[in-house]
Design a protein around this nucleic acid. Structure first.
Length: 467
RNA sequence: GUGGCUGUAGCUCAGCUGGUUAGAGCACCGGACUGUGGCUCCGGGGGUCGCGGGUUCAAUCCCCGUCAGCCACCCCA
């Protein structure tokens, strides 16, 4: 191994040529994209079912859109650079600033409530690990202009219905709900001061992931007395409205927030999702801008990161876009969701789609007949394939072509009797059908769509999909 | 950004205290079963053993670095 070093002294170490994709970025092979598309379909289907409309914005934004309003931590993780025009730009790490700008620009013209959703690809420069990449797709669903808790209930219902749409149930996924206004009143009743709120939020957020001793120490360090510490540590155990009534019902100042939370839960009941929902006052959400209801969706086993999180942010549009409108929304990423679906086997039968037809060349027909038949089928809106090799089209045995059709995932075979007639049979046939007679169609009929559809329908072929 | 573990074919993995041309299964491509299918058989392509350096007569194996992946922090989407 004595390859001579020709690099001059002191030159920087050469980075090996990059092979795969960049760290934290994904290649979507057809089977991967099929799974991604299944998620996208569910997102769009449910969002539309609730009458949300889709929008999008630029994936690249001015850097200051994020540096001005977002936290310091986000700024260190921006995928930012200077473009050739000398502008400081960043790939979008979240959709909300773009959404706020777009809504603000037409705030007066938009009918309220605004119900918009988007499927942006978002970017963050940070260490990649399971469930967390440098890039992901995130469904964003937002409602603007509606202050009542009916909107809060509807929003959570969208997230839950997506779980249903994907085949998950309340035994698989739990929705944990809380309300910051309520929590603030509860903490005030306990005697927590405004200045101590941040520390208490921090402890509550981590109560499940951090030893209770550590939590208690942090609360004491914030200046809370033992009695207060115990009452705060008891908050995550609250599971029902009755618990809340029992512990805080006598405090007059808490009552309005309590009643509002009760109405929220009542709406969720009427919408039929109560079986999915748990009260969990330790859900505060990391982002500081939430002002009302907050929720997160988790896998029931608690093995994965949060699937989805959101809530009400009534002051954010004023801060970000300059219009003072109440708003709420959630984000749901494709990465954790995909892992959950995979773990439940719900991706097993998601495959790339094969063609409806495979046209099989035989000794009885001219190769040109294969092409014209496929062309006719395609004009009718079907996907049609045949062996794409001239030599094989002339000489390959039908058996080999049928094998190829099977591998390609075709549904129907067209097998020529001669240059004017062909048999149409399903590729997957039942046992005992090996010698069955299959319908024969006249190729002439395929040249006219109406007669073509009739002929194929007679052979049992459904109409072409129009998507 | 910090720490720990891992890195052999497209995938899942073998590779016996360092010793000739690094193997298997699956997948892929081709052929046979004398031209209408799922079986079976035969053959083939594919690996700078992540990359770079060091120790050694000899390194996939030992040491260092680096890159990548996973995990835990950090933080969140």
């Amino acid at each position: 191994m004595d390859n001579d070093e020709r690099l001059p002294e002191g030159s920087p170490p050469k980075r090996p040529p990059s092979k795969g994709s960049l760290p934290g970025f994904r290649d979507f092979y057809p089977e991967d994209l099929a799974r991604r598309s299944a998620i996208f379909r569910a997102w769009r289907a449910v969002a539309r079912r609730y009458s949300f409309v889709e929008y999008d914005g630029p994936p690249l934004e001015p850097l200051d859109l994020y540096t001005q309003k977002s936290g310091d931590e986000i700024v260190t993780q921006l995928y930012s650079f200077e473009d050739k025009g000398g502008r400081q730009v960043s790939l979008r790490p979240e959709m909300t600033p773009t959404f706020a700008r777009m809504v603000a620009a037409r705030a007066n013209a938009l009918p309220k409530p605004v119900r918009w959703f988007s499927l942006p690809q978002l970017f963050r420069y940070e260490r990649a690990q399971r469930g967390r990449l440098r890039e992901h797709f995130q469904l964003n669903v937002d409602i603007v202009g509606e202050p009542s808790e009916l909107a809060d209930a509807e929003l959570l219902c969208v997230a839950i219905d997506i779980m249903r749409e994907l085949g998950l149930g309340p035994d698989d996924v739990r929705a944990k709900v809380s309300d910051r206004r309520l929590l603030n009143e509860l903490l005030a009743a306990i005697g927590v001061s405004e200045g101590q709120l941040g520390a208490v939020y921090g402890v509550l957020d981590k109560v499940a992931r951090q030893p209770h001793d550590v939590s208690r120490e942090k609360l004491e360090a914030a200046g809370l007395v033992p009695n207060q510490v115990e009452r705060i540590m008891a908050l995550p155990d609250v599971a029902t409205m009755d618990d809340l009534e029992r512990d805080f019902g006598h405090v007059a100042a808490v009552k309005p927030a309590l009643e509002r939370f009760g109405r929220y839960l009542g709406h969720l009941h009427a919408l039929g999702v109560t079986a999915w929902v748990d009260i969990d006052l330790s859900i505060v959400r990391g982002l500081a801008y939430y002002t009302g209801t907050v929720f997160e969706l988790f896998d029931a086993k608690g093995e994965l990161r949060a699937i989805c999180g959101g809530g009400r942010y009534d002051n954010l549009l004023a801060a970000l876009g300059g219009v003072d409108l109440p708003a709420l929304g959630f984000g749901m990423g494709d990465v954790v969701l995909g892992e959950l679906l995979k773990a439940h086997g719900l991706f097993d039968d998601v495959v790339t789609e094969g063609p409806e037809f495979w046209v099989v060349s035989t000794v009885h027909n001219e190769p040109a007949t294969v092409l014209s038949t496929a062309a006719a089928l395609r004009r009718m809106g079907y996907a049609a394939e045949y062996v794409l090799n001239e030599e094989k089209l002339r000489t390959q045995k039908s058996a080999a072509q049928i094998k190829a059709a099977e591998r390609a995932g075709a549904q129907w075979l067209v097998i020529f009797r001669d240059d004017t007639h062909a048999e149409v049979r399903p590729l997957s046939r039942e046992k005992g059908e090996e010698h069955r007679e299959w319908p024969v169609i006249a190729l002439q009929d395929l040249q006219d769509p109406e007669r073509g559809y009739a002929a194929l329908a007679a052979a049992g072929v459904p109409a072409a999909r129009d998507d």
